[in-house]
Design a binder for these strands. Sequence first.
DNA 1: CCAAAAGTGTTGCGTCTACACCCATGG
DNA 2: CCATGGGTGTAGACGCAACACTTTTGG
Lengths: 248, 248
Amino acid sequence: MTFSYSGRVTEQVMRRPVAGVTVTVDLVIFTVRQERLQVLLIERGQGPFLGQRALPGGFIRPGETLDEAACRELWEETGLDSRQLHLEQLRAYSEPSRDPRGRVITVAYLALGPDLPLPVAGTDAAAAHWTPVYAPDGKGLSLAFDHDEILRDGLERARSQLEHTTVAAAFCPEPFTIAELRGIYEAVWGFKLDPSNFRRKVTRTEGFLNPTGGRRFPDVGRPAALYQRGPAELLLPPLLRTSEVAFL
Amino acid sequence: MTFSYSGRVTEQVMRRPVAGVTVTVDLVIFTVRQERLQVLLIERGQGPFLGQRALPGGFIRPGETLDEAACRELWEETGLDSRQLHLEQLRAYSEPSRDPRGRVITVAYLALGPDLPLPVAGTDAAAAHWTPVYAPDGKGLSLAFDHDEILRDGLERARSQLEHTTVAAAFCPEPFTIAELRGIYEAVWGFKLDPSNFRRKVTRTEGFLNPTGGRRFPDVGRPAALYQRGPAELLLPPLLRTSEVAFL
DNA sequence: CCAAAAGTGTTGCGTCTACACCCATGG
DNA sequence: CCATGGGTGTAGACGCAACACTTTTGG
């Protein structure tokens, strides 16, 4: 199968609207596993940047919104269900040289979810792997296309969202403890938080956490109360990351 | 120029990328004039929604980034120079039914600038008019396409940006007084601020305002010191709009 | 008992709101 | 002098970082 885009580089054409722009969606999917922030990357099986790592994504289809395309790609490439994750649009990237195949504009999405197993049943998802965002050597990941930039933007957006919204709970498989929720903040922000002050802040915010009544018994120490996500979306007042600066 | 993309042959039609997507940029351009927040609208001279008001915008061209297209449209449709405004990407809108002409995805931009004259010299800009965002009757503006939604999103983004960044100064022709800067916040947020507390906050933030040494003599009252924009971009700590809720 | 983690209390510091007050100008 | 808006001072409320302290479990 082939599709072609034909254009001529004359003055006339320059003023004509671009009919053949190709639009893709790319996904920055974060989770926290092994106490580290990890991003889902695929190994490219074809085309440019073959063998290199990249964000999952793909072309949009005729009747689809970008949101729908993002959900579909999420499913096709990772086997994850969009109902289990928080999904939001990041922004569009449009450098003409960003894709060697031609004019491809991509709209990036940010997805945040719990540490789910990736059903690798024979699909494209076979090439998908969780990868720590903070490399041990502190170097970047060097992804295909402009995906390093997209990843940076996604990381900054995720960090900011944790301050102002309750999305952090989307990282936690229910039911979860306050210590687990705190672990999310610590992994995403890259520094430790005071357990007692953190607890006060999240419990004060009405509608953030619903106590289930149950408790979790760790190997050692006092058992922790269990919670589910509440209806609140916004965090008022915000939970600010002051002073401390994370690497990357 | 031709480029080709080869994919698998299964499910041919559904898996084929969309070649015919058209991409536009639309601009939400805000200014404050006559102590009110106003948005630049054009009256549509053709095509669908003829005669109805809409946000300025247009098709992207082959070699252009979205940012460049936004700058160009700004110039073509309003005669404004992008160096005089703050310009940032808002987000992409992709409902398949949003444009009756076919599949058109638009990337919206937010522009904030001082109350500049619109050079209307024979260009498309003739149809451009500043329009108060808060209609006296409290009703929406009913713009073409999904531009009401884009405008709402732009307004919310502008309000949020005032809290966390120094862009408010982009609304003020230099040099400006602190009272003028406060007027920007009041117009965008839709409620009054305490003059003395406002002054303290903005003067405390290092790099927000540079005193010129000059003063402005009003018709009545003590003269005000004049300032220029400083190098700072971020507002730390943020200037929060607590409690009060603006209409719309 | 001890170790470890959950959870509470308290203190001191900084910021914000509200409002009183002073300053500089034109009339 | 007064009116008007620019600009400063200050007291009380509030939020938060830091850290001591208590509670609840397993070993």
